[in-house]
Write a protein that binds this DNA or RNA. Structure first.
Lengths: 251, 251
DNA sequence: ACCTGAACACCGTTCAAGT
DNA sequence: ACCTGAACACCGTTCAAGT
């Protein structure tokens, strides 16, 4: 992906003037099964990506699923990169946003925003990879980031610090979630649970002469599943970050 | 990449029993130019990846660069995934590790470790994408992580907390660096500096009706370049994280 | 032991043509 | 306006063959 053809650097779908004429009437025409339109294509793409992973997601497979020739899709969507951006924004719309009227503490809202983002990304592991590749400035992504900005605006942080604070939180969440998804996928590929797979890798590493069983990495489950520990670690690091950025503030 | 063929899930190179016989003598044979060996292939791969990006990096291009038929490479390396893992571990070897004998504060060493990691990844933008895909358990990567563990072991954190603390730091660094690399690459692809490109995107977004110029994202340069601000934000977030995890400790 | 040539089973996408 | 068919220019990789 990502502009094999170096001649003309690809612009984000969201920065491309809308092709107005193309595929704009699917909705009005009645959603009789056979008909193609942008939304149906995107929804199908998301479903296939979820079911089979991005490695197996091809324009040809998508067309087959839509009962159509590969090139039909191109009437509605310019190229695969655009489609990925569209699909990504679609799942961004699934992120549960906290109700601003609920009057909760901003820290709580920030944490639940982070958790909602993580949940959605883990539910669509291909999405986080795409998130790293594209600009993520579609309407749903922008709504999410507007919500995050509204939350941080309720913090006692000086206005000039807020963007950096928000970036820090979501860079962390992105990093955490990337790793988490990858382990889950590795496990799935290997036909094991993530726990089993981690255990297996740790075992192989322990035998290697390079690292003298340096401790760490593993051997820290005492009754809790890896999943529970992941959740706890996620929360803890968020607390650290938030506590750190609030240190020395009046509130 | 990543196991298109779902039949047999790929194992990491590092978990594969070494093929001992293959390509093991390049060094002894004298490094006369024409000869192929594992190390030469890896070094050339890294160079091509650096020069042209991973999108253009193909086994065929690599073979051409090595003045050889595409299939020659396969005598030494099983497949492209393995090669990527090998290349990734090679650049991991470039990360500057702090001298443990220097007697610096553990926080300082942790920060410089994070910065060194970030620098190396930004110098090889393809590497951070690979880092998200593979297991990263090669010898050089393990040496890095052993060093990080040694640093955190000098902290006053209780032993049980250390792995989580280390994870949190490097998850953040990974997230930060992913975004940073991506912006730099976007700028390069568009033939602009990262600053110009960000400016351009921000301009386009501001015009969109979706987001009512929510503020944030931009308009926060006061004499400093974006690069300087990035560096400062990176340091700040690390400080927050470290301060947060040390809060309530005796030291 | 090492390297080649030809081929296979794919990709995304262009382009001219159909209805 | 919408969809198709054939083709192009690629991929990674297998397999049998050369030296």
């Amino acid at each position: 992906m990502a502009a094999k053809r170096a001649s003309q650097p690809r612009r984000s779908v969201w920065l491309t003037p809308e092709p107005t004429t193309r595929g704009r009437r699917g909705a009005e025409r009645g959603s009789g099964a056979g008909h193609l339109d942008r939304e149906k294509i995107i929804a199908t793409a998301v479903r296939l990506l979820d079911e089979q992973g991005d490695a197996k997601f091809t324009m040809r497979a998508l067309a087959t699923e839509l009962d159509v020739t590969p090139m039909s899709v191109y009437w509605y969507i310019a190229n695969k990169d655009d489609l990925m951006e569209l699909a990504l924004d679609a799942v961004a719309g699934e992120i549960e946003l906290p109700d601003p009227a609920a009057g909760r503490d901003w820290r709580e809202d920030l944490r639940s925003l982070a958790l909602a983002w993580r949940r959605t990304m883990v539910a669509h592991p291909w999405a986080i990879r795409s998130y790293g590749e594209y600009l993520n400035i579609g309407p749903q992504s922008m709504q999410f980031s507007a919500c995050a900005q509204a939350v941080i605006a309720r913090s006692p942080l000086p206005e000039a610090e807020r963007p950096a604070a928000l970036s820090a939180v979501f860079q962390y969440v992105y990093g955490f979630t990337s790793m988490e998804s990858r382990w889950l996928e590795y496990g799935k590929e290997a036909g094991r649970t993530a726990d089993e797979f981690l255990e297996e890798v740790a075992g192989s590493i322990a035998q290697s002469p390079e690292i003298a069983a340096g401790g760490g990495l593993m051997e820290r489950h005492s009754g809790h599943s890896l999943g529970e520990m992941r959740d706890r670690d996620f929360d803890r690091a968020l607390d650290w970050l938030i506590a750190g950025m609030c240190a020395g503030l009046s509130d």
